[in-house]
Computed example of a mutant assay.
Amino acid sequence: MFSLQLHSTHRIILALRLSYLLVFISSLPNSHSYPSRTHITIYASCSQEKYQPNTPFEINLNNFLSSVATSSSEVTYDTFSIGNGTSTTQDGAVYGLYQCRGDLHPIDCSKCIGRSVNQISLVCPYSLGASLQLQGCYVRYEHSGDFLGKLDTSIRYKKCSKDVSSDVEFFRRRDDVLEDLQTANGFRVSSSGLVQGFAQCLGDLSVSDCSTCLVDAVGKLKSLCGSAAAADVFLGQCYARYWASGYYDESDSHNNDQVGKSVAIIVGVFGGLAVLVVLLSICKKAAG
């Protein structure tokens, strides 16, 4: 009898903890309270190749994600190679990196990376390679380390505003901003009149490769988005963005966070089912 009560008490505590988790998830800061909307999802990319559960790769991947979450509270960029020390673990090796936007405070960087770490396995389940770009941070891992330090200017994401401008002054200011951004070494913010922008390279690029990447990104902004009042282009290892002051509003950002909404739904459903299963188990034991 005592054993039954102990198990029931344990299940009640577990149910309460799961309920608390759901409440916590539902209370995560929205774009009105989270600095610079860093939690908004830009894009996700998942490899077609999958790994099997309970394999060395999964163990190393979990270690990588844990290391990323810990490191982000101290530095805004880092690279990792886990499980590549011996030939016996080579098949399970994980290579990866993370980077926060250059203007983020370490606390906000850590929050952003924590959100990415929680999302990437849900967005890309059992993928041998994945990348997730949020407004404020980026996480990527692969089975091979060939991508580290290698220039990649392929387009990962672009967005051109529907609003366009025919103002000659706007184009002059925009071009001033873009010219400044393409000379950045790492992260740079620029403004001219009512036009603002920023650009960033991944930390594993050399100065010359960073310049090459940003020149390409700026060129694509102009060629792909033309007279757009705001535009974003994310390449494999850098990005550049500009906008007319006040263009990016809250509703526009919410419409773009489709991956984030999907993850919230997945977590909510599984969390609700877990609580239901525990409660049903308690009722069954009590009835018995």
Results as ranks from 00 to 15, higher is better:
residue 6 L to R: 06
residue 6 L to S: 09
residue 7 H to Y: 07
residue 8 S to L: 09
residue 9 T to M: 13
residue 9 T to R: 13
residue 9 T to A: 11
residue 16 L to W: 00
residue 17 R to V: 10
residue 21 L to D: 01
residue 24 F to Q: 11
residue 24 F to T: 11
residue 25 I to Y: 09
residue 27 S to W: 05
residue 27 S to V: 01
residue 30 N to W: 06
residue 34 Y to H: 13
residue 35 P to S: 14
residue 37 R to C: 13
residue 37 R to H: 13
residue 38 T to S: 15
residue 39 H to L: 15
residue 40 I to M: 06
residue 43 Y to N: 03
residue 44 A to F: 05
residue 44 A to T: 08
residue 49 E to N: 12
residue 49 E to V: 03
residue 54 N to S: 15
residue 56 P to Q: 11
residue 57 F to H: 14
residue 59 I to V: 08
residue 61 L to T: 03
residue 61 L to Y: 04
residue 62 N to V: 06
residue 64 F to W: 09
residue 66 S to R: 07
residue 67 S to K: 13
residue 70 T to R: 03
residue 73 S to W: 02
residue 74 E to W: 06
residue 79 T to S: 11
residue 79 T to F: 04
residue 79 T to Q: 11
residue 86 T to N: 11
residue 90 Q to R: 08
residue 91 D to L: 11
residue 91 D to M: 08
residue 92 G to R: 06
residue 95 Y to G: 02
residue 100 C to R: 00
residue 102 G to V: 08
residue 106 P to K: 10
residue 107 I to F: 13
residue 107 I to M: 04
residue 112 C to F: 10
residue 114 G to S: 08
residue 114 G to A: 03
residue 117 V to H: 07
residue 118 N to S: 10
residue 118 N to I: 01
residue 119 Q to D: 13
residue 123 V to L: 03
residue 125 P to S: 07
residue 127 S to A: 15
residue 127 S to D: 01
residue 129 G to V: 03
residue 130 A to L: 06
residue 133 Q to G: 04
residue 133 Q to S: 10
residue 134 L to T: 07
residue 135 Q to P: 02
residue 136 G to C: 03
residue 138 Y to I: 05
residue 139 V to H: 02
residue 144 S to V: 10
residue 146 D to I: 10
residue 147 F to M: 04
residue 148 L to V: 15
residue 150 K to M: 04
residue 152 D to S: 07
residue 153 T to K: 04
residue 154 S to F: 09
residue 156 R to G: 09
residue 156 R to I: 10
residue 157 Y to R: 09
residue 158 K to L: 06
residue 159 K to L: 14
residue 160 C to R: 04
residue 161 S to C: 00
residue 166 S to N: 08
residue 170 F to Q: 01
residue 170 F to V: 02
residue 173 R to Q: 14
residue 175 D to T: 06
residue 178 L to M: 11
residue 180 D to T: 15
residue 182 Q to K: 14
residue 183 T to A: 05
residue 183 T to N: 04
residue 184 A to L: 03
residue 189 V to W: 14
residue 189 V to T: 09
residue 189 V to H: 13
residue 192 S to M: 05
residue 193 G to H: 05
residue 194 L to R: 12
residue 200 Q to K: 10
residue 202 L to Y: 07
residue 204 D to R: 00
residue 206 S to F: 00
residue 207 V to K: 00
residue 208 S to N: 07
residue 209 D to M: 00
residue 210 C to S: 02
residue 211 S to P: 03
residue 214 L to N: 07
residue 215 V to F: 02
residue 219 G to N: 05
residue 221 L to V: 08
residue 221 L to K: 11
residue 223 S to H: 02
residue 224 L to R: 05
residue 228 A to K: 08
residue 229 A to P: 03
residue 229 A to L: 14
residue 230 A to P: 09
residue 234 F to R: 01
residue 238 C to M: 03
residue 239 Y to F: 15
residue 239 Y to S: 00
residue 239 Y to A: 01
residue 240 A to T: 13
residue 240 A to C: 05
residue 243 W to T: 12
residue 249 D to E: 09
residue 250 E to V: 12
residue 255 N to E: 13
residue 257 D to F: 13
residue 259 V to W: 11
residue 263 V to Q: 08
residue 264 A to K: 05
residue 264 A to N: 10
residue 267 V to F: 07
residue 269 V to N: 05
residue 274 A to K: 00
residue 277 V to I: 11
residue 278 V to C: 00
residue 279 L to T: 13
residue 280 L to H: 09
residue 281 S to Q: 14
residue 284 K to D: 05
residue 286 A to K: 12
